[in-house]
């Protein structure tokens, strides 16, 4: 019985992990290229969640349509905040960019609070479900998983096959070397930041496809924390590392949930959160360059 429950939870964990991974790629990309830690990461996920919610409840549009809409909104926000704020901070001490991205996150949260309010919201997108022997999966979760993998794949292809993607890799590996080759480094910064935020807002759509409730202006905080753990798992500056880090994290989170639930008087949900921090601490102590990075 426990075996089945564990297998079921691990399946859910794998799916959620794919979405987590996708939700961390933007953070890693921005850190890898600009060296900026986006502390406001979760607020952009929240923007994606509200985009999905509003399109669905106000216009009756499916969350699938929200994916490209969120990407466009995210990239527009990314370019806007790059040219208004981040452009001044790429040479500045880390504390400056931490404060600035924290401020951007707060600004987004308070703007949404001011215009929409703080109630928890949700939506119900029923597209059927499939019953496996071990668990029942709503189709919406499967779409979220497939969407995450497709987006991660597209990013991979963009990185490895296109001129701009190659330039981004070059800037990540040696900014000055890229400049010598005639890469417009400022433009690559702007583009990477915009794509990073675009991915993050889009991940907000996928996350609500997985968990269509609890949408509120402050929902991002928990995701910021998880994204940091995942990014560290995956090697911080590597978007693909982040994706695999997400898969592992989803498995651990859901697998241990089952185990924690066996212990009476433990609140399993709170324990998984405790566990995230424990993992973060352990990795930072043992292998601070990330588990999945060779270097």
């Amino acid at each position: 019985m426990i075996g089945i429950q564990l297998a079921g939870n691990l399946t859910q964990g794998l799916i959620l992990g794919g979405v987590y991974g996708m939700a961390t790629m933007g953070l890693s990309l921005i850190f890898g290229v600009l060296g900026v830690v986006n502390v406001g990461h979760g607020a952009f996920i929240m923007i994606g969640a509200f985009t999905t919610l509003l399109l669905f409840t106000q216009l009756g549009l499916s969350p699938i349509i929200a994916i490209p809409v969120a990407l466009v909104i995210g990239m527009a926000l990314g370019f806007f905040f790059y040219y208004t704020v981040i452009i001044r901070l790429t040479e500045a001490p880390e504390l400056a960019s931490l404060l600035a991205t924290f401020a951007i996150g707060t600004l987004l949260e308070e703007s949404v609070k001011f215009t929409i309010g703080t109630e928890f919201r949700g939506y119900n997108w029923d597209v059927g479900k499939i019953s496996l022997h071990i668990t029942t999966l709503p189709m919406s979760k499967i779409y979220a998983f497939v969407g995450s993998i497709l987006i991660a794949l597209l990013l991979y292809l963009w990185f490895s096959k296109t001129r701009a993607g190659t330039a981004v890799r070059a800037v990540m590996q040696d900014r000055k070397g890229a400049g010598v080759c005639g890469v417009n480094v400022n433009w690559i910064y702007a583009l990477s930041f915009a794509i990073g935020i675009g991915l993050t807002v889009t991940s907000g759509v996928l996350l609500t496809m997985f968990i269509p409730v609890g949408i509120n202006p402050y929902m991002g905080g928990a995701y910021t924390l998880k994204a940091f753990v995942i990014a560290v798992l995956g090697g911080l500056a590597s978007p693909y590392g982040a994706f695999f880090g997400g898969l592992i994290f989803g498995l651990i989170e859901n697998g241990t949930y089952t185990l924690f639930a066996l212990v009476p008087s433990l609140e399993p949900f709170a324990m998984t959160r405790f566990l995230s921090f424990l993992i973060l601490l352990l990795i930072l102590l043992i292998k601070p360059t990330g588990l999945l990075r060779a270097k």
């Binding site: 890799r169 070059a170 040696d174 000055k176 070397g177 890229a178």
Partner: peptide
């Protein structure tokens, strides 16, 4: 440039 600045992972 001084100090090479190659792309080490390429």
């Amino acid at each position: 440039p001084e100090g090479k600045h190659l792309f080490p992972e390429m």
